[in-house]
Amino acid sequence: MSAPSHPFATREIYRIDWLPGTDVLHGTCHCGREHTCQDPVEMWEWMLAHPRGHQTQGNAS
């Protein structure tokens, strides 16, 4: 018998914060990588393209 699964157990969490007083968005991917830009479409494309652009640890792209 398999263990009961929690509904959020396998979900990926993406976070986008708006930096107050600016037009800058700061995103954090579920893998922990970070990205900063002004275009919300660019931010979501970067996040949903995971892992492309995420390979080098410590290099926010």
Rank of each mutant, 00 (worst) to 15 (best):
E34R: 13
S5M: 09
Q38F: 01
R15W: 01
M43D: 02
A49W: 00
G58M: 01
P7I: 00
R11W: 08
W18T: 09
Y14C: 02
Y14F: 15
R52K: 15
P40N: 09
L48N: 13
G21V: 03
N59W: 09
D39A: 02
L19G: 03
G27E: 04
Q57M: 12
H54T: 05
Q57K: 13
G27K: 07
E42D: 15
T28K: 10
S2I: 08
H30Q: 11
T56P: 08
H6N: 11
W46L: 04
R52V: 15
M47V: 07
G27D: 00
V41K: 12
P7D: 01
V41C: 00
G27I: 05
A9H: 08
G58A: 03
P40M: 03
T56V: 14
E12V: 06
D17Y: 07
A9D: 14
H30V: 02
P40S: 07
A9W: 06
Y14W: 15
R52L: 15
F8A: 11
D23S: 13
P51E: 06
G53C: 00
V24C: 06
D39T: 04
R15M: 11
A60D: 15
P40C: 01
E34F: 06
P51F: 03
Q57G: 11
H54F: 00
P40T: 02
D17N: 12
T36W: 01
Q57H: 14
H35Y: 13
A49F: 01
L25N: 05
I16Y: 04
P4Y: 06
E45C: 11
L48I: 07
P20I: 04
E45F: 02
M47R: 05
T22K: 01
D23R: 13
R52D: 15
V41G: 07
H35M: 10
G32I: 01
W44A: 01
H50Y: 14
M43E: 04
